[in-house]
Nucleic acid binder design. Structure first.
Lengths: 263, 263
DNA sequence: CAGTGGTCTAGACCACGCG
DNA sequence: GCGTGGTCTAGACCACTGC
């Protein structure tokens, strides 16, 4: 395979961003170290300051560095915490990589409100604007104070109306156990919708994201055996801090080998 | 709940980006429509052209608009194709939302090479640099010519060496069936690792991504009953075109309700 | 106070696609 | 040729932090 001349004619800000990325990976600056000031870097690379800033902005959006206004630009530690999609149901709680137990849970708001359109879009049996109980939460690393996750739960009025789920306090036990008790039904099926995107302005603010940094967004729909929705829960994480894990058995007898596929 | 004054003191380029986003959502410009030229927009919003460009760049990274050099900036259709994480094993092939069957498969390269570090990082039983058979693929929408997915498969030498998997041609049937035949073992367990991030320069080029647009990256590890790796497959999609779906049964008896959790 | 990054301007020049 | 977006420059001014 021929190595392409990728980048030979790339714009300056990209070539410089690539070079900075390489120097960081090679350990020229360690996590926590401050990079030279943008004016100094601009001089070193023989660039104007705005173009140099554009190069640094690339690394900032990637999560490789973090800029603190008035202080400097620092190399970030590359730590992508692993999280299982099904941790919410209590399995694998003993796994040391589990996150949420270490995080501080805050309820941003709780009460009735209209079902957002992006939630209704993944449900066949609900309309945007339907009144539901909405609980918005924020999870923060108590050690660093860093916001790690922002999310919300949507519970049908028939289950949550006039209950403690309308109160803005952390629930006494795992959320799904509360809902099971109130609904009188057991969780039976789940469907997750995983999206990567850029954050909304609100998310940028709440999560303290740098401009251009993407987020991972999961909408989790839980239903009872009879198919009725018990709870919809959505979570948004800064993309550079998370890796979502999904383990499952393969059932080869279900295979239908008719179509060639490289996947 | 009090509506925050978010954006009242936000930078101009953000306020203008928000306004453009709103105008697009309200249908002032339909998908396919061309936005006014940046100079015209700059005049309308009483901004300098560079700042106006910065605002447009936000929408471009979000996937809301697409700029064609020398032509103009156009509103993109919001279509997020749904794809099941486990389609590769032939289930749900009848689902009309399944993607890969409609796509054109191209083998970019096939042959032996070292296991990349980011793949070894999710395996307990392999080291970066281990020699494996690597098949790199590109999936393209034949109607539009748009690249929709770039990816690779990594198969242990013991299975794929001296076989047709080292040839850069599309395999005659589903990949996992080929590997099962060659290995003499059945696929039994799978583990997926889902990451959202900004693309590498190579991915930006191959997928034709605008600057700042994120990608979704999945590493799929398939093992036999005895725990040996049969195949590792990774896929990268432009984030704005995909929603990954994961369905699974909930087993409430596995719950361990000891820890309060809002998730 | 000095140094840093964040925003914004004004304008030059180029590359691209189309008529 | 002309209008478009893509890149780059030079510099101003501000906001934030830490000494």
């Amino acid at each position: 395979m021929v190595t392409s001349d990728l980048g030979a004619f790339a714009p300056k800000y990209q070539r410089v961003a690539n070079d900075l990325r390489r120097r960081i990976r090679q350990g020229e600056w360690q996590p926590g170290d401050r990079l030279p000031a943008e004016t100094a870097l601009a001089e070193h690379y023989d660039l104007s300051v705005p173009t140099m800033r554009q190069a640094v902005a690339v690394l900032r959006a990637e999560g490789a560095v973090e800029s603190r206004h008035g202080v400097g630009t620092f190399v970030k530690e590359e730590r992508r915490l692993q999280r299982r999609s099904r941790d919410r149901y209590g399995r694998a709680r003993k796994d040391s990589r589990l996150l949420t137990a270490h995080l501080e849970h805050t309820i941003l708001s709780a009460g009735r409100g209209p079902l957002p359109a992006h939630i209704a879009a993944v449900l066949d049996d609900a309309e945007p604007g339907d009144e539901v109980v909405i609980r918005r939460r924020l999870l923060t690393d108590p050690k660093t104070g860093t916001p790690e996750e922002v999310g919300a739960s949507y519970v049908p009025l028939g289950i949550a109306a006039e209950t403690f789920l309308e109160e803005p306090t952390v629930v006494p036990k795992a959320m799904f156990l509360c809902v099971e008790e109130l609904a009188g039904k057991r969780y039976a099926q789940a469907r997750d919708h995983w999206i990567a995107r850029l954050p909304t302005p609100e998310e940028t603010q709440v999560l303290g994201l740098p401009t251009g940094a993407p987020v991972m967004h999961v909408i989790h729909v839980a239903r009872a055996e009879d198919g009725s929705v018990l709870e919809v829960s959505e979570s948004v994480w800064p993309a550079d801090r998370i890796m979502l894990i999904d383990e499952y058995p393969v059932e080869p007898e279900a295979a239908m080998p008719e179509a060639p596929s490289e996947i």
